[in-house]
């Protein structure tokens, strides 16, 4: 973005830079930074007997990591998110590969746009439509029964499997996008050179294409993990009350118990997990000079 060779503006102009960015900064500070500080502060308070006790304590965090309900929620969230990431990569990569390399560029772009179209259903509506498909009286069960393959409807909705299916549906589209973008950026001459030097199609994939597309995969995987682990809607609609994930636990604290401090602490844990995920993957994003 730098204007090459530009001299530094004098004081008045520099002030102007701050002035222009000022409103945006003010908004972010007032409505984002300040609330985040409140969240962190609240996480150290406690709610005792319906009253807010504003003395500092790590009680909430202790409970978050030791109380069975919360610990289970955290573990469940991690498991579901990791499974989602892995499944989405496995499903999306071959799709992105075929669209990027096995057809004329135009078709690939059209098919990609098509693949991403359901992305544009409202997220809530999208999860609802999976309920339509997976419910006891839903599309899958009715079809199976009509075909005589099962006698009784099988339970898919309100299970972890349903949540994962709902997630994988959404994130496969996301991953297909990021992986496709990564694949088409690889100059074709690299693959030609590999083939020219004796690599088979498979070995070209393993030695050249895969490593060079890795940044796209990592970006997609990171986004998937972060969005999945923080999502309230899909587990609530599809997973039901059988298994609680972290966002649902947070919501329960807000709505049922009115225990904002506990909700805040759980949120802080969520942010911590996301932060760790970022640290683990940032290096592989491939941003900047290669």
């Amino acid at each position: 973005m730098a204007a090459v060779g530009r001299t530094r503006p004098e004081g008045a102009s520099t002030g102007r830079g701050w002035a222009l960015a000022g409103p945006a900064l003010a908004w972010t500070t007032a409505f984002f930074l300040a609330p985040m500080v409140f969240v962190l502060a609240y996480s150290l308070f406690r709610r005792v007997g319906g009253e807010l006790v504003a003395s500092l304590s790590f009680e909430n965090y202790r409970r978050a990591f030791t109380e069975a309900a919360f610990r289970t929620a955290l573990v469940n969230s991690l498991e579901v998110s990791v499974i989602t990431v892995i499944a989405s990569v496995l499903v999306a990569y071959p799709v992105a590969y075929l669209l990027a390399y096995r057809m004329p560029r135009r078709w690939g772009q059209v098919l990609l746009a098509l693949a991403v179209l359901p992305f544009w259903t409202s997220y809530v509506v999208r999860s609802y439509s999976w309920l339509l498909v997976l419910a006891k009286e839903g599309v899958v069960n009715r079809t199976l029964m009509a075909l005589g393959l099962v006698a009784e409807p099988i339970t898919i909705a309100n299970t972890r499997a349903a949540t994962v299916i709902g997630f994988v549906h959404f994130f496969t589209m996301l991953m297909a996008l990021t992986i496709y973008a990564s694949l088409v950026q690889i100059p074709e001459s690299y693959r030609k050179a590999a083939r020219d030097l004796g690599a088979s199609g498979w070995r070209t994939l393993v030695h050249v294409t895969l490593p060079l597309s890795l940044p796209g995969v990592v970006v997609g995987a990171f986004l998937t993990f972060v969005l999945a682990i923080g999502d309230y809607i899909t587990p609530q609609i599809l997973g039901g009350a059988q298994e609680l994930l972290l966002p649902q636990a947070i919501m329960l604290q807000v709505q049922r118990s009115g225990d904002f401090p506990m909700a805040a602490a759980l949120s802080a844990v969520l942010l911590l997990v996301i932060g760790l995920a970022y640290l683990a993957s940032a290096r592989r994003f491939g941003l900047g000079a290669r």
Binding site: A2, G15, W18, L25, L33, M36, P247, I250, A264, S267
Partner: peptide, 27 residues
């Protein structure tokens, strides 16, 4: 205008992307 600490400004403005909507709403 390339003010000094431009990268800090940029960082602050982009930061909300990293936070789950749930937490923003809670805050």
């Amino acid at each position: 205008y390339r003010p000094p600490a431009a990268s800090v400004i940029r960082g602050v403005l982009i930061a909300p992307i990293a936070v789950s909507y749930l937490v923003i709403g809670l805050g």
